[in-house]
């Protein structure tokens, strides 16, 4: 069994209005050392078994649905674990 952690964030070149608002709020709380905030999404996928390499499946899912690659980047981590 595989647990996959997928992270989707706005591309560096795309302004993240939520991140800017949160950064400003942190600054008003005196967290002046926090220079930048980018907000994204975190998803967990569970794959019991797969005919195809897991990496290939996850990549395709990200490209097709989980991320909009016009404005978003994605990365993922695959963990193989023993089913309980």
């Amino acid at each position: 069994m595989f647990k996959v952690k997928v992270y989707v964030t706005l591309r560096e070149s795309v302004l993240d209005p939520q991140g800017v608002a949160v950064k400003n709020s942190l600054h008003s709380l005196n967290f002046s050392e926090i220079e930048d905030v980018r907000i994204g999404k975190y998803m967990e996928l569970t794959i019991e078994k797969s005919e195809r390499p897991v990496e290939e499946v996850v990549k395709e899912a990200c490209e097709k649905l989980l991320a909009n690659t016009v404005i978003e980047d994605y990365r993922f981590e695959i963990e193989e674990c023993v089913a309980l």
Partner: peptide
């Protein structure tokens, strides 16, 4: 239509949120 790729580009949250 943007998500379907029938039109180019993408939508972001309003600047003001």
């Amino acid at each position: 239509l943007l998500e379907a790729g029938l039109l180019p580009g993408a939508m972001r949250r309003n600047e003001s949120l």
